[in-house]
């Protein structure tokens, strides 16, 4: 069967990708040890997203994937964000939110 427009390169790229992921893991653990308040979660999420992108682009071969499949995969994140966004919109704007949650 097939195919694949992209030519086969060596395994070097995979090793580099793995090294990058390990470095990013170390960074995220290191940053978590420092208390930066709210920034901590933000930074952790940014690093996680960077790692996720690296996995998607090189391990999952997004760089050679068809536009259609890129759109398909991207759609998942867009709709997950819609799910979160509109739910958050409600929870965030409820009056006396603290009182709604008993046993606080």
């Amino acid at each position: 069967m097939a195919h694949d427009a992209h030519e086969i390169k060596g395994i070097g790229i995979y090793l580099k990708v793995f090294a990058t992921l390990i470095v990013l893991t170390i960074v995220t653990v290191a940053v978590a040890q420092v208390n930066l308040g709210r920034l901590n979660t933000l930074i952790a999420m940014l690093i996680a997203t960077a790692k996720a992108l690296v996995v998607m682009i090189w391990f999952m071969h997004m760089n050679h994937e068809s536009t259609l499949n890129r759109i398909v995969f991207g759609t998942a994140f867009i709709f997950a964000l819609i799910f979160y966004g509109l739910t958050f919109m409600d929870v965030d704007t409820r009056i006396n939110l603290q009182n709604l949650f008993i046993n606080k």
């Binding site: 893991t25 978590a32 952790a44 690093i47 790692k51």
Partner: peptide
């Protein structure tokens, strides 16, 4: 897991 790890283990 890349997302679960910081969310569960590293939240502050």
């Amino acid at each position: 897991w890349i997302y679960l790890f910081p969310l569960l283990y590293l939240v502050s």
